[in-house]
């Protein structure tokens, strides 16, 4: 299983630089907001965490549809399906999700504090937004795996994946933003939404790979 993780990370880093695309898209989304909203520093600081979250959410959708499609095209997916008796398929999917997250989403989390500066987010808010992204984005990847598995047989499934998984990732977004705002805005609590966010990630870490495995097994 660790071999699968290593291979997937290596592919993610080596082939095409999906991480850089995501980071550039994230940068583009966050950078244009101040121009659109205007130079009101208080307003920017207030919407900053939300913008970071929306940017990261959209950027992490890029490349998700290739999660299983590339494997299907070169026949590796058949091998994963046949190896089901030895390595449970849901576990293989889980490992692939983790690797995808490491190679493509972790860089987004890493640049989030930097992009937060664009939005005049105070240091505590930056730390909170980064922490919530770190905890919350795996959930989006796990949800995305279900979408990617469902459209694995379709040649142009990219947009469909986004449409399928966006409604499911709304709760993650809500609690992620609520927690990061709670860290700065005084009456709002930080811990309750943060714990719910953690629970969401754990929940989807179980449901997502199992559902994706089911979809993959019935793909053709």
């Amino acid at each position: 299983m660790f071999a699968l993780y290593l291979r997937e990370v290596r592919l993610g880093v080596r082939a095409g630089g999906g991480a850089l695309t995501g980071v550039l898209f994230f940068l583009a989304v966050v950078a244009v907001i101040p121009f659109g909203v205007g130079p009101d520093l208080d307003l920017l600081a207030r919407i900053g965490p939300a913008v970071l979250w929306i940017g990261a959410l959209l950027a992490s959708l890029l490349g998700l549809e290739r999660l299983f499609q590339a494997d299907r095209e070169d026949g590796s997916l058949d091998m994963l399906l046949i190896a089901d008796g030895r390595h449970m398929l849901a576990l293989s999917v889980f490992v692939k999700c983790l690797a995808h997250w490491t190679a493509n989403v972790l860089p987004l989390v890493a640049v989030a504090p930097l992009l937060g500066l664009f939005m005049n987010v105070p240091p505590v808010g930056l730390a909170a937004a980064t922490l919530t992204l770190l905890i919350g984005t795996p959930a989006i990847t796990f949800i995305g795996a279900v979408g990617a598995a469902l459209v694995v047989a379709l040649p142009r499934g990219g947009l469909l994946v986004s449409v399928l998984i966006l409604p499911l990732s709304i709760p993650v977004l809500i609690f992620g933003v609520a927690a990061s705002r709670g860290a700065v805005a005084e009456p709002d609590p930080f811990l309750p939404p943060f714990l719910i966010l953690t629970a969401l990630t754990l929940f989807f870490a179980v449901i997502g790979p199992a559902a994706a495995a089911l979809a993959l097994r019935n793909a053709d």
């Binding site: 290596r10 080596r14 082939a15 070169d74 026949g75 590796s76 091998m79 190896a83 030895r86 390595h87």
Partner: peptide, 26 residues
């Protein structure tokens, strides 16, 4: 199962591909 497709990643070297399959297949 040796199908129509070779189940190898074009971005990895031949050796990396095979080492992976050996470790994965056991």
């Amino acid at each position: 199962y040796l199908g129509h497709f070779n189940a190898m990643k074009t971005a990895l070297t031949v050796e990396e591909n095979l080492v992976f399959w050996q470790r994965f297949l056991g």
